[in-house]
């Protein structure tokens, strides 16, 4: 088992409030980890910390990613090194077309990897190929990034971008929320096509639905700023059926 990510005793805060309080998590190449937990537990905070969002502050702990100190890397370098976040609330960028946005992203990564810039024709070919992954209509790539996209379209667009950028570690923050049944299946199939032994996923979700398509190796429960329980996919079923109440009556901790 080759280690991709190791989070040790992570403490993090936002606006002076401590949200993560000693979180530990190790992810190996090729693994799928689901993270569940109540609203406000800190799931999105974890994604923000991993991707280097400057609004969130790490107060102590360490994160090693690809044998490097992740916390000393700039957010754009983390991205070029294969870290991808499918945002819970994707941002709209009026006036910047998906085409230009993706070309800039692809070329930034290629430059970082000391590869040549992608030619316009190769880029268009790649866009077309990856659009097919998530059945994204061509009209979306001519539009401004996420502008006026419906909730579900935004989520599908996140996964399209993920397919384009071929991340090593993808964090999907409630990508399943807001997707209709068909879209969920399409997105899940897209993710399965991208998944290999050389990349890993953190899937943040409130529902078991997505996990029926993408079977997680581990399911973690985040509460009180820590991973308080880890199980296999049956843990997700249990949460779906019973809620988080069983955590409070002392059965498991």
């Amino acid at each position: 088992m080759k280690e991709l990510l190791k989070i040790t005793d992570l403490h993090a805060s936002v606006n002076g409030t401590e949200i993560l309080k000693g979180l530990n998590l190790t992810i190996n190449y090729g693994e799928v980890h689901a993270i569940m937990g109540q609203n406000g537990a800190g799931k999105s905070t974890l994604g923000a910390i991993l991707t280097g969002n400057p609004a969130y502050e790490v107060t102590s702990g360490s994160i090693v990613y690809k044998n490097q100190d992740l916390l000393s890397m700039e957010p754009e370098i983390r991205a070029r090194e294969g870290l991808f976040l499918s945002f819970q609330y994707p941002i709209e960028i009026p006036g910047v077309s998906m085409n230009n946005f993706m070309l800039a992203a692809i070329n930034a990564k290629r430059e970082h990897l000391k590869q040549e810039k992608m030619s316009a024709s190769d880029f268009l070919k790649l866009m077309k190929e990856k659009r097919a992954f998530v059945e994204l209509d061509s009209k979306f790539v001519k539009r401004s990034v996420n502008e006026g996209f419906s909730g579900g379209e935004k989520k599908r667009n996140e996964i399209f971008q993920m397919a384009m950028l071929e991340p090593t570690l993808a964090i999907l923050d409630e990508t399943d929320s807001g997707l209709d049944v068909d879209a969920l299946r399409i997105v899940a199939n897209g993710i399965n096509k991208i998944k290999t032994d050389d990349n890993s996923f953190i899937i943040v979700t409130h529902y078991q639905r997505l996990l029926e398509y993408i079977v997680p190796d581990f399911v973690h429960i985040l509460a009180d700023g820590k991973i308080i329980q880890t199980g296999d996919k049956t843990l997700a079923t249990k949460i779906e059926n019973e809620g988080f109440a069983f955590l409070n009556n002392g059965t498991n901790h």
């Binding site: 280097g52 991205a79 960028i93 992203a105």
Partner: peptide, 10 residues
């Protein structure tokens, strides 16, 4: 930050 997260520098 959305740009940065996609690898595009400031």
């Amino acid at each position: 930050f959305y740009f940065l997260q996609r690898g595009i520098a400031r």
